[in-house]
């Protein structure tokens, strides 16, 4: 089975590393293609690398995650993006889903939560 290429968008370095470490646990299925530290960079890197999946933090400087999701979706309507945020309000969740995120993950999350969400995102994308 082909490895899924994942773009990690996170402004906090320890979070970027943690996500990479988690994906390393399933290295047969996922590989990290690159990191982006803000929305703007995320959009640029998405266009450049065309990853299969994106983990997108919502609270970031320069360009926030919601805006980035929208722009990526404009570029590639089929993009599979998982929104990650600490702000667990229903409004925030709905805003992310409306912007085009396929899944939504609350901080804090365990490794299990992450892979469940990724699986779900891919299943939804195939349907």
């Amino acid at each position: 089975m082909e490895k899924k290429r994942v773009l990690i968008v996170e402004d906090a370095a320890y979070m970027r590393e943690m996500l990479a470490e988690m994906l390393e646990q399933e290295k047969d299925r996922y590989e990290v293609v690159d990191f982006a530290v803000n929305g703007k960079e995320a959009v640029e890197k998405y266009k450049e690398l065309k990853p299969d999946l994106v983990t997108m933090d919502l609270a970031m400087e320069v360009m926030d995650g919601l805006q980035a999701i929208k722009e990526i979706k404009v570029y590639d309507p089929n993009a599979l993006i998982i929104a990650i945020t600490a702000l667990g309000t229903p409004e925030q969740k709905n805003a992310a889903l409306d912007a085009g995120a396929g899944e939504y993950l609350w901080k804090p999350f365990t490794i299990k939560n992450l892979f469940d969400a990724l699986e779900k995102l891919q299943r939804n994308g195939e349907e």
């Binding site: 943690m18 470490e21 901080k107 804090p108 999350f109 490794i111 992450l114």
Partner: peptide, 15 residues
């Protein structure tokens, strides 16, 4: 902001 530092605690613990 309190949840944000919780994320790596929970995440790394699960790792």
């Amino acid at each position: 902001e309190m949840r944000s530092p919780l994320a790596p605690i929970v995440g790394y613990a699960s790792l």
